[in-house]
């Protein structure tokens, strides 16, 4: 009950993190396994990474996935930021309940439903399924996550900063770009990163909404996994984990350093 870690708190946190990280760790370790059998360790090797480099289908899928993730995350960030502004700033407007419902529902909506309904829409509209339908689908899914992340930043935003800008003669549009946007930027960036990884990660919705020629990496991994566990999947998973983990850790280190510098500056200001 006291501050600090009692043995109970320490144990539960340690066990919890072990549970969260052990499977991932094992996956990474076995990606360097010489053997074709995933579960039997025979020796250290980069064999499967080499195999990956020659697997053109896998590399193509990775390239498609990256492009889809980049484009859809960018569009979703713009739309999601607008959505967050509409939710936080415009008080009551006609259809607000429907609107906020449409922002929150996709967060929990099972992927199979979203995927199926988007596919049937594309078929009804007679759109050729492929790269662009995939982007439409991913924007729809991820913009809601962006909206929620940006919203949490906006609600703590001091409105008097905008009022001060207006008071000093900046038009509402200028105020948004010079004051509001720079200050909610951390939220917008976090929203973009979340949208990017969600798109990178998605299997179900992509399976429904994509077409020939636009197979994504998760789809590729899924079909390989269905045939059985292969070390090559371990290798690509390891690369993905490394890329994402590096990105997230670097991003959070930067924010943390800024925070520390900020606190230091504040302490100095109080003394001086």
């Amino acid at each position: 009950m006291r501050r600090g870690l009692t043995w109970f708190n320490a144990t539960s946190v340690a066990l919890g993190f072990a549970f969260l990280y052990l499977p991932i760790l094992l996956l990474v370790v076995y990606s360097f396994n010489e053997s074709k059998l995933v579960t039997v360790w025979t020796g250290f090797s980069f064999r499967w990474y080499g195999a990956l480099l020659n697997d053109k289908a896998m590399l193509d899928a990775a390239w498609v996935t990256l492009r889809v993730a980049f484009l859809s995350a960018t569009i979703a960030t713009v739309l999601g930021t607008l959505g967050a502004l509409a939710l936080v700033r415009f008080g009551r407007f006609l259809g607000r309940t429907v609107f906020s419902g449409m922002i929150y529902a996709p967060l929990v909506m099972p992927d199979v439903i979203t995927g199926l309904s988007l596919l049937l829409l594309f078929v009804s509209l007679d759109l050729d399924r492929g790269f662009w339908t995939l982007i439409l689908a991913h924007v729809t899914l991820t913009m809601c996550f962006v909206a929620v992340v940006v919203q949490s930043r906006l609600v703590t935003f001091d409105r008097s900063l905008e009022e001060a800008a207006l008071d000093l003669g900046a038009t509402p549009t200028k105020t948004f770009f010079v004051i509001t946007l720079p200050l909610i930027m951390p939220g917008v960036v976090a929203g973009w990163m979340l949208a990017f990884t969600l798109s990178l990660d998605d299997l179900v919705i992509a399976s429904f909404t994509t077409g020939p020629g636009a197979t994504t990496l998760p789809m590729k991994i899924f079909s390989q996994v269905k045939f059985g566990v292969t070390p090559e999947v371990n290798a690509i998973s390891t690369i993905l984990i490394l890329v994402v983990a590096t990105g997230v850790i670097v991003a959070s280190l930067i924010t943390k350093r800024r925070e520390v510098e900020r606190q230091k500056a504040e302490r100095l200001a109080l003394q001086g």
Partner: peptide
């Protein structure tokens, strides 16, 4: 007349200094 066209200026309770 919108606030950005009025010849008044305000000092805010929170100061509202632009942090960036």
């Amino acid at each position: 007349i919108p606030p950005y066209k009025r010849p008044t200026n305000m000092m805010f309770q929170s100061y509202a200094l632009f942090p960036h």
